Amino acid sequence: KRVEVKPYVLDDQMCDECQGARCGGKFAPFFCANVTCLQYYCEFCWANIHSRAGREFHKPLVK
């Protein structure tokens, strides 16, 4: 058996893009583990950032 640990998915993290400004101060539910991102995102910022060319295939890690 093999266990994969993702220590970078933490609870209670603010969106790295808007710092809570676009999501009413809620914590960010998404983390993008792609090396070009490596950031936490609220729903609004995830949709906005990941609609751009080259990022549309990134998969979010959801808390």
Rank of each mutant, 00 (worst) to 15 (best):
C23T: 09
R2N: 15
G54E: 10
F30K: 13
C15F: 02
G25W: 10
C32K: 02
G25L: 06
E43G: 07
E17G: 09
Y8G: 15
E43P: 06
D12W: 06
F30E: 03
G54I: 07
L10F: 12
Q13C: 07
K63I: 04
K59W: 03
R2D: 12
K26F: 04
C18I: 00
A47Q: 12
D12V: 06
F30P: 02
M14H: 04
Y41T: 04
E43L: 03
C18L: 00
G54M: 05
C37L: 00
K1G: 06
Q39V: 12
V62A: 06
N34K: 08
T36K: 11
A28E: 05
E17P: 04
R52N: 12
E4V: 06
H58Q: 01
R22W: 04
L38Y: 15
A21D: 07
F57A: 15
V5W: 05
C45S: 00
I49H: 11
K6V: 08
T36D: 15
F27L: 11
E56C: 06
Q39D: 02
E56P: 04
E17N: 08
N34S: 09
H50C: 02
A28F: 03
E4G: 05
C18A: 01
D16V: 11
G20Y: 02
C15K: 02
G54R: 09
P60K: 15
Q19K: 15
F57V: 14
F31G: 01
V35C: 05
A21R: 11
A21I: 06
N34I: 01
R55C: 06
W46F: 13
R22F: 04
P60D: 05
V3W: 01
C37G: 02
C15A: 03
C42P: 00
P7Y: 03
P7G: 07
C32W: 00
A21T: 08
E56Q: 06
L61E: 15
D16H: 14
F44L: 12
F44M: 07
F57S: 15
F27I: 06
F27A: 14
V35N: 15
Y41N: 00
A47T: 11
C45M: 00
N48C: 11
Q39A: 14
Q39L: 07
D16M: 09
E17Q: 14
C37T: 00
Y8Q: 12
C18P: 00
V3Y: 04
H58N: 02
K59F: 02
A33H: 07
M14A: 09
F27T: 10
D12L: 05
Q19M: 09
Q19S: 10
Q13S: 07
K6N: 12
D16G: 15
K63P: 15
P60F: 00
A21E: 11
Y8N: 15
L10Q: 15
N48A: 12
V3N: 06
R52L: 11
V62S: 09
N34L: 00
W46S: 02
E43Y: 07
M14V: 09
H50N: 00
C42G: 02
D11N: 11
R2C: 05
Q13K: 15
M14T: 14
L61G: 14
V9H: 13
R2Y: 02
L38Q: 13
I49E: 03
C37Q: 00
A21W: 03
R52T: 14
T36W: 04
Y40V: 03
K59R: 13
A47M: 12
D11R: 10
Q39I: 02
R2F: 04
K6W: 04
N34T: 07
T36G: 14
K59A: 08
A53D: 12
C37V: 00
P7E: 13
F31S: 02
V3Q: 15
V5M: 12
R2S: 13
S51N: 14
E56D: 11
Q39K: 15
Y8W: 09
K59M: 08
K26C: 05
L61R: 11
V9D: 14
D16L: 05
C37R: 02
K26T: 10
W46N: 04
C15W: 01
C45V: 00
L61Q: 15
V5G: 15
R22G: 04
C23N: 08
P60H: 06
Q19G: 11
P29G: 11
Y8E: 15
K26M: 09
F31K: 04
C23V: 04
K26L: 07
F27N: 09
C23I: 04
R22L: 08
V9I: 11
G24C: 05
N48I: 11
A53L: 09
C42V: 00
W46E: 01
V35A: 13
C45D: 01
G25D: 09
G25Q: 10
Y8D: 15
V35P: 15
G54N: 15
N34C: 04
M14D: 13
R22Y: 05
K1F: 05
V9S: 13
P7F: 03
D12H: 13
P60W: 01
C37D: 01
R22A: 08
A47R: 11
L38W: 13
K63G: 14
R2G: 09
D12C: 04
H50G: 02
K1I: 06
C42I: 00
Y41G: 00
L61T: 14
E17A: 07
C18V: 01
Y40F: 09
H50M: 00
N34D: 10
L38N: 15
N34Q: 06
L38D: 10
Y41I: 01
D16F: 15
L61H: 10
C15Q: 02
C37S: 02
D12M: 06
C23D: 13
Y40L: 03
H58Y: 00
G25P: 04
K59Y: 04
G25A: 07
E4P: 07
F27G: 10
M14Y: 14
L10R: 13
A53R: 13
C15V: 02
D12P: 08
K26E: 09
L61K: 14
E4S: 06
V3T: 15
V35M: 04
G20M: 01
K1W: 00
D16R: 12
S51L: 11
K1E: 13
C45K: 00
R55N: 11
C18H: 00
H58F: 00
C23M: 06
R22T: 05
F30M: 11
D11G: 10
E17Y: 07
R2Q: 11
C37N: 01
P29R: 10
W46G: 02
N48W: 10
P7Q: 09
A21G: 09
C42S: 00
Q19Y: 06
S51P: 08
V3M: 09
C18R: 02
A53P: 15
N48T: 13
P60N: 10
V3H: 11
E17S: 10
V9G: 09
R52F: 10
E4L: 04
G54F: 07
P60M: 07
K6P: 09
A47K: 14
V9C: 12
A53T: 14
C42E: 00
R22K: 12
A47G: 10
D16A: 14
E56S: 08
G24D: 13
K6Y: 03
V9F: 14
Q13P: 06
T36P: 10
F57M: 15
G54V: 04
A47N: 15
E4Q: 09
A28C: 01
A28P: 06
D16C: 13
P7W: 02
V35T: 13
A28G: 04
E56F: 05
G24L: 09
G20D: 09
I49R: 12
R2K: 14
A33Q: 14
K1V: 03
R52S: 14
F30R: 09
N34E: 13
E17W: 05
K63M: 08
K26N: 08
G20I: 00
V35R: 14
C45Q: 00
V5C: 10
R55M: 13
D12F: 04
F44Y: 14
P29C: 07
Q39C: 10
L38C: 14
W46D: 01
M14W: 04
E17I: 08
L61I: 14
A28Q: 04
L38P: 01
T36I: 09
N34V: 05
D11W: 05
M14G: 06
Q19F: 07
V3P: 11
N48S: 13
A21M: 06
V3F: 06
V35K: 12
H50T: 01
F44R: 11
D11Q: 11
K6L: 05
E56K: 13
Y41W: 03
C15I: 02
G24H: 05
W46L: 04
H50E: 02
D16S: 15
W46I: 03
D12R: 07
F31M: 03
P7C: 01
L38R: 13
C45P: 00
G54K: 06
P29E: 08
L61V: 14
H58C: 06
A28S: 04
P60E: 03
N48G: 14
C45F: 00
P29T: 09
Q39T: 12
G20P: 01
E43K: 07
K26D: 07
E43S: 12
K6A: 10
G25V: 04
S51Y: 07
Y8I: 11
D12I: 04
F31L: 04
L61M: 12
N48M: 14
V9P: 10
F30A: 05
